[in-house]
Structures are given as structure tokens and as C-alpha cells.
């Protein structure tokens, strides 16, 4: 499953990336394989997403979130 599939409030652990223009920057921002990510909320129009990684909020689009494989963390 990918990050896009998570609903607000759910979190997952990153397994890997489908490489794209953003991958390097995402990893520099602390989204590495093994990191935990929580989807906090969606923007009013449903896109982009507000994520919580390493204790801070980062916003990316669903299209890019769909390129991040995760395993869902059970609450």
C-alpha cells in the first residue's frame, strides 16, 4: 500500500520510494525508509496532505504520496 491510501489520523512506516523528482528532497527532509509518517489531515480541496514526520509537519501532494510504499502501523 502507499502513503496516499492512509486516512487522516492513520500512520505508516516507509518501505521504499518509486524514484521521482522529489525523492531526494523527501529523504533529506527525514522521510527515509523505516521512518514513521502520520497523515494529519487533507487540505480543504482534498489535496495536498498534511503529514507529520520526525515531529514536524510537512505537506505533499497525493500524487507524490502515491509513490511512497508503506506498511500501515496499527494504532
Amino acid at each position: 500500500m502507499t502513503l496516499e491510501d492512509l486516512r487522516p489520523g492513520e500512520s505508516g512506516r516507509i518501505l521504499g520510494f518509486e524514484p521521482n523528482a522529489m525523492t531526494d528532497r523527501l529523504m533529506e527532509m527525514g522521510m527515509l525508509p523505516g521512518s514513521e509518517v502520520q497523515v494529519v489531515r487533507l487540505a480543504p480541496l482534498g489535496d495536498p496532505m498534511d503529514l507529520k514526520v520526525r515531529g514536524y509537519h510537512l505537506s505533499i501532494r497525493k500524487a507524490e504520496a502515491a509513490l511512497i510504499q508503506i506498511s500501515k502501523c496499527e494504532p
Binding site: A21, M22, M29, Y56, H57, L58, S59, I60, R61, E64
Partner: peptide, 12 residues
């Protein structure tokens, strides 16, 4: 070409 992407920190 190159689709724009969006990545933005939402500071407290």
C-alpha cells in the same frame, strides 16, 4: 515537461 511538485513545511 517536468511536472511541478509541491513540498512545504507547515511550521507551528
Amino acid at each position: 515537461g517536468q511536472q511541478s511538485y509541491f513540498m512545504m513545511e507547515l511550521p507551528p
